[in-house]
Design a protein around this nucleic acid. Sequence first.
DNA 1: GCTAATTAGCGTACAGCATACGCGCACGTG
DNA 2: CACGTGCGCGTATGCTGTACGCTAATTAGC
Lengths: 237, 237
Amino acid sequence: MGQGGYELLWGNPAGPGRGRPAGLSRERIVAEAVAIAAAEGLPRVSMKHLAERLGSGVMSLYRHVPGKDELVALMYDSIMSTPPDLPADQGWRAALTAWAHAVRDLFLAHPWALPLATVNHVLGPGEAGWLDSAMRAVGASGFATDLSLASVMAVNNYVGGAVRPELHGGQEDPLWFTFLADDGAMQRFPALADLVTEGHFQESALLRDHFSFGLERLLDGLERYLEPGSGQGASLT
Amino acid sequence: MGQGGYELLWGNPAGPGRGRPAGLSRERIVAEAVAIAAAEGLPRVSMKHLAERLGSGVMSLYRHVPGKDELVALMYDSIMSTPPDLPADQGWRAALTAWAHAVRDLFLAHPWALPLATVNHVLGPGEAGWLDSAMRAVGASGFATDLSLASVMAVNNYVGGAVRPELHGGQEDPLWFTFLADDGAMQRFPALADLVTEGHFQESALLRDHFSFGLERLLDGLERYLEPGSGQGASLT
DNA sequence: GCTAATTAGCGTACAGCATACGCGCACGTG
DNA sequence: CACGTGCGCGTATGCTGTACGCTAATTAGC
């Protein structure tokens, strides 16, 4: 799974040879695969289906892509081809906030990509660009490099987890707590039962904006560590 | 994918019928599947391989499990059958810290389960128990229910993302930054290049303990929100 | 312009996967 | 002893990714 994918992601496209010209291209294949994943889901991206969409034979794809796993790795990196625009003159917190929301928007736009982020993979040029943009923005405030990376990683780790619940239904999954309506589950999980009896999920702004809530808490904590002097109060923005 | 898995996870085991007694059982199947995943990885859990391990025919499994997807859902929930022990009398922060490390240990013990956590799934009794234990511990400090849930979710979201880098090689993946040794990648990603030229990844305690670092920052931020009065300093523990 | 080298396109074949169907058998109950 | 219920499972089907080798198209050298 992406073990030998290093040269694949970083290798040069190899100049125009002297043989038969290519009708297909790696870019066209990857782009069409991403389109299928967006429209029909990642499981529908099969070599057969993909070839049909491209009007080519199945095995022709293997002239441009070593295999399915590598294709998926290319799909994943391709959605990060352009790093986000971050505010440059408003400090690290504003930059990290913008970055976190950009990452979130990216995975909301490409729901199929989130599980791939959780799997170990080789860092491609796209993802490197996103990482670099965050590191530059934080490093501009003068922090040590490892401290910058640890902060960016903390935010990145949080965002990956926080986006997941938003992918399914929009708000917090109603199916999740169906079981509480049943028999003795209320006694088995009293703290969860409170959620239902108190009727949250419909009203709570905290839960509707749980992404921003957690992000602000994390940034508050980073701020306390990075700038021990500033004694800001906490507020939900 | 776990769409109709609701009754599966929460349904009763159905009393002993009056037909031929079952040699196989759902529990034995799930336990063996977990053992295979632990020893050989999740992709090796195929119905054929699983049946061979159990000394039964392939199709016999379908008498006890509706299908592969549901089996995986049962595997996932089964590793959370016993909720963690949390310190009850040391406040919400100690409890959440212990809970976060328990979740981390769980996924380190079952690396195959982490990608499943990222995918949308029906909440099973095991995961509900873990969630409930955290909610009870935080709720004991008297916070509103939705605030407790938002805090627990924030920690849970962070943990899921932070465990991933630890699964691959132990420390931060060396392969990740191989490309920086190459050509003009150093100019393309200057902030990442600094990481290499400064020689972190070998020495930085911050990066070695990035899990704890991010967790402490998040908990600091939650503390500032939940207990605005306490003006604790920040420290890396 | 002809020939040789190079490369793209792709049909066929194969191993592996989940699983629908239906038969036969073992057991508890009458 | 016979009945019926539920279990074990062999067979068959359609899907998956991909190794192999042939054919066609184009360019480089003569």
